[in-house]
Simulated assay, not measured.
Amino acid sequence: MNDGPVNDGKAPKKERMRFVSAEQVAQLAGVSRSAVSRTFTPGASVAAATREKVLRAAKELGYHVNDLARGVLANQSRLVGIVATRPEVGFRAHLAAALAKALIRRGSFPILINTGQTEEELLAAQKMLIGHRAEAIIILSGSPPPSFLELAQRNGQPLVVIGRSEPDADHVRAGNSEASRMAATAFCKSGRRRLTVIGSNSGTPAIVERESAFVSAAESLGASAVVARGGDSDYQGGVTAGRALFSARIKPDAIFCANDLIAFGLMDVARLEARLRIPEDVAVIGFDDVPESAWLSYQLTTFRQDPLVMAQRAVDLMERRLENPDSPPAYERVIPELIIRQSFKP
């Protein structure tokens, strides 16, 4: 006879995972529930002997304070929304990671909200943004639509934007125009005269600023300057723009790319399809200094945006806004540094 469990054809019940509660700690420590709460509340009064018993019981049970629930009760969620479109791409990925680290150091809970690119995805992301009662919102460069900013502002959430201009928001921006003028000047001083800047049809504020500043500076120095664009500000955008440029009768001898991903696509087309030498036939400068820029395949000369610096500036602005809600919008500008590698040496 089989004395084991009877199999009645039903799948075994899945046991619900339960976190250790403050009540369980109180029972094990032999104290009240409020004593446990006071022990884990900074500045609250609790006897030393009681504190010791509570901490010993908490350690034995593996208890941790539910900071999220405590924040909701105090109307301070400590959640900070990081809003981005395609956050996995290029510099945005490194900036999102740096923001998460800076916010965790501060004691905040970063929540990454990918806006998506369809109407359904946008609506779901907006619902997430407001439904979680974020303490503040940080919106990255790229193309999160203005509706996200309007929604945050209507709900009274402090707002910091990175790499774009928005009214009534605190800003962190790279020195796009300064870098673009520096690139055009460096090309002209090295004797290059057929200059091109590659942007994208996405038309983000940072891309537009880099394009216009480069063209203006080049023309003021007596060089011709052309704007080329791929579909988006990514590797394929650089491939598309490169194929168009290098199939033309007159080819550029120097190209400033609005970001490094565009530069990588352009450089691969130049060398592998157009059989051009870099920098002898065409010099290339990028923007961002993502880690791949230093790879032996590229050795890209580029302007460095430091994601750690940008992230900390954004968090500083957020804290300033939380402390002084009625202060006028603040503005931080971070000037990129030109990192010299093999694709162009001034």
Score class of each variant (00 low, 15 high):
residue 111 I to V: 15
residue 273 E to N: 03
residue 313 R to P: 00
residue 196 T to K: 02
residue 245 L to K: 03
residue 26 A to H: 04
residue 245 L to N: 02
residue 138 I to M: 08
residue 41 T to P: 13
residue 154 R to E: 15
residue 108 S to R: 14
residue 31 V to P: 07
residue 240 T to M: 11
residue 278 I to D: 03
residue 110 P to H: 07
residue 217 A to H: 04
residue 202 S to R: 12
residue 168 D to H: 15
residue 36 V to N: 02
residue 337 E to Q: 14
residue 289 D to Q: 14
residue 114 N to Y: 00
residue 54 V to K: 00
residue 312 Q to P: 02
residue 85 T to M: 10
residue 85 T to V: 09
residue 179 A to L: 09
residue 232 D to I: 04
residue 276 L to H: 05
residue 308 L to N: 06
residue 141 S to W: 00
residue 69 A to G: 08
residue 311 A to T: 07
residue 82 I to C: 04
residue 165 S to D: 14
residue 4 G to M: 08
residue 279 P to D: 04
residue 1 M to I: 11
residue 126 Q to M: 15
residue 56 R to S: 05
residue 160 V to G: 13
residue 66 N to S: 05
residue 334 V to D: 06
residue 267 M to A: 04
residue 15 E to Q: 12
residue 13 K to G: 13
residue 25 V to G: 04
residue 333 R to P: 00
residue 145 P to L: 14
residue 192 R to A: 07
residue 315 V to A: 10
residue 46 V to T: 12
residue 275 R to S: 10
residue 287 F to T: 07
residue 141 S to V: 05
residue 107 G to T: 09
residue 110 P to L: 08
residue 127 K to I: 08
residue 1 M to H: 13
residue 60 E to Q: 08
residue 100 A to P: 00
residue 181 R to D: 00
residue 294 A to N: 12
residue 153 Q to E: 12
residue 69 A to W: 04
residue 137 I to W: 07
residue 51 R to S: 06
residue 27 Q to K: 14
residue 154 R to V: 12
residue 8 D to P: 02
residue 308 L to A: 10
residue 154 R to T: 14
residue 99 L to K: 00
residue 259 N to F: 07
residue 210 R to W: 01
residue 324 N to H: 15
residue 322 L to N: 11
residue 183 A to K: 05
residue 188 C to W: 09
residue 198 I to Y: 06
residue 287 F to Y: 15
residue 302 T to R: 11
residue 246 F to C: 06
residue 240 T to S: 13
residue 76 Q to F: 01
residue 6 V to W: 09
residue 256 F to M: 05
residue 302 T to A: 10
residue 108 S to W: 06
residue 87 P to N: 09
residue 2 N to D: 13
residue 316 D to P: 00
residue 301 T to E: 07
residue 282 V to C: 11
